[in-house]
């Protein structure tokens, strides 16, 4: 079985790297915010309002990345019965939902001064909103069953079915002439973003990613403890017969 599959080994490993992720998150976020809000210059077109980008873009990236984590966890739980996979997926989903909400909120705040509107029904914004509903649907579905394993399986199928939405978000800006501008970083030619702005963006992305890792580990640890106490409860109430 895969090394990480053994819950004990995972708990020990998680315990050791947790403090490092928390430290890395703190450092990156501090440096990132300092760069983003103070050091980096205003944009040639948008002036100061561009600073919202340093939160909006990383949270949008993470919103999509975390959904892939949930989908990957769901696939390995359904197909390979990996014991930790559903724990990881269920631990990651609420964090992903939070980042999606943040991406939508900062997007709207950024949109008002620059586009002239809080919200407009176009392909990119709609598909990100659908992503938020997918997260909320997943969380609701997983908790809607009395038997946690049953909920985990149902949620896993939903998460996999929802994966189709991720490419739609990614390419929505290219397929439709949407109001949302095309990708700045992943352009084929040189990235259209100046290094003085790229550095804070990447720092913020790293910081938020580390934050996600730290919170994910904490949530997984507590989920494992709950699962263990439930198992102990079963033993305590005498369902355990002679140890075969």
């Amino acid at each position: 079985m895969h090394a990480l599959a053994n819950p004990t080994r995972f708990m020990r490993l998680a315990g050791t790297i947790l403090p490092w992720t928390i430290a890395a998150a703190a450092v990156c976020l501090a440096a990132g915010l300092w760069q983003a809000l103070v050091v980096s210059p205003p944009d040639y077109q948008q002036g100061e309002t561009v600073r919202i980008m340093y939160v909006h873009v990383p949270s949008a990236w993470l919103a999509m990345f975390i959904y892939m984590v949930v989908a990957a966890g769901s696939a390995s739980f359904l197909i390979w019965k990996h014991p930790l996979a559903d724990v990881a997926a269920q631990a990651a989903a609420p964090i992903g939902a939070a980042f999606t909400a943040m991406a939508l909120a900062t997007g709207a705040i950024w949109g008002q001064p620059t586009w002239g509107t809080w919200w407009v029904w176009d392909a990119r914004l709609t598909s990100v909103l659908v992503l938020l509903f997918l997260y909320l649907g997943y969380i609701a579905l997983v908790n809607a069953f009395d038997d946690p394993e049953r909920g985990a399986r149902a949620g896993a199928v939903l998460a996999l079915a929802g994966v189709i939405n991720i490419p739609i978000i990614k390419f929505s800006v290219d397929w439709w002439n949407t109001l949302h501008q095309p990708a700045s970083l992943t352009r084929l030619d040189a990235p259209a973003i100046h290094s003085s702005m790229l550095v804070p963006l990447l720092l913020m992305a790293a910081g938020l990613f580390m934050y996600f890792l730290a919170v994910l580990i904490i949530r997984m640890q507590s989920a494992m403890l709950v699962r263990r106490s439930r198992a102990l409860g079963r033993v305590a109430c005498g369902t355990a017969g002679p140890q075969a």
Partner: peptide
């Protein structure tokens, strides 16, 4: 609505 292109750079560079 303003359609903002994907370029971000400081004023001096522009």
């Amino acid at each position: 609505l303003a359609k903002h292109d994907e370029n971000y750079m400081p004023k001096e560079v522009a």
